[in-house]
């Protein structure tokens, strides 16, 4: 079960991204970020369900394609086989929604220092983008960075603000390639974010570009 919502979420996912998630068209990193935000946000949960209703309407109106004669018998024969059940998704923790727990494979984050007290735990890096957790001490800034593609940043603990607004738990920032932003963690609690990109990041100040392949950021 998902934890009770503690914060009024004001930053949501754009409609086309929810629709693409519904249609299975997002890469893995973005899919985790979308599923994690929806876990925390009933507004986007309802919007996603509306897109699934549209997907369902399309499914209903498709000209059916006949299936093999024995397909139904094969499925009926497996109904009592417990091994045929799809795997259960992992339960959320107090900080990490289920989809993030799945990306962590149920283990605690393996934090690596990025300097200045900032830490990251890389969860996924591939052609379709990267996924990591960021740990930002209170009041600390994440160095100015741009990105090749889009970046989603979901707050899981604490809060941050940047040139575009203030983001608390459950809020998601959607940045495109043109946004050069400097997120600063609020005073008080350290800020933990889930950051997903659909292209590799390029940091300006923190780590020289040459080191990027080593740190895989």
């Amino acid at each position: 079960m998902t934890p009770a919502m503690t914060h009024h979420i004001t930053h949501h996912l754009p409609e086309p991204m929810l629709a693409d998630y519904a249609a299975g068209r997002l890469g893995h990193a973005f899919s985790v970020a979308v599923a994690a935000h929806v876990s925390l946000c009933d507004e986007c949960r309802a919007r996603l369900a509306a897109h699934e209703a549209a997907g369902g309407a399309v499914l209903e109106t498709l000209p059916p394609e006949p299936v093999s004669d024995d397909l139904m018998a094969r499925v009926m024969a497996r109904l009592d086989d417990p091994a045929a059940a799809p795997p259960e998704p992992p339960a959320p923790s107090s900080i990490f929604p289920g989809p993030v727990m799945a990306a962590l494979k149920g283990r605690p984050p393996r934090w690596r220092s990025l300097g200045m007290g900032i830490r990251q735990s890389l969860l996924h890096a591939g052609k379709d983008g990267s996924l990591r957790l960021l740990y930002i001490p209170p009041g600390r800034a994440v160095p100015d960075h741009g990105h090749e593609g889009r970046e989603l940043t979901l707050v899981l603990q604490g809060a941050f603000h940047d040139e575009t607004g203030h983001f608390g738990v459950g809020d998601i920032e959607v940045a495109d390639a043109s946004l050069e932003h400097t997120p600063v963690a609020d005073e008080g609690t350290p800020c933990i974010c889930l950051a997903a990109t659909d292209a590799p990041l390029r940091f300006r100040a923190l780590v020289p570009r040459l080191l990027q392949p080593i740190f895989r950021i």
Binding site: M1, T2, G24, H28, S31, V32, V34, A35, A36, V38, S39, R45, L48, P87, P89, A91, P92, P97, G98, P99, A102, A103, H124
Partner: peptide, 8 residues
């Protein structure tokens, strides 16, 4: 990696 799905 499987399909990430929102918590029920």
């Amino acid at each position: 990696e499987g399909r990430p799905v929102p918590d029920e």
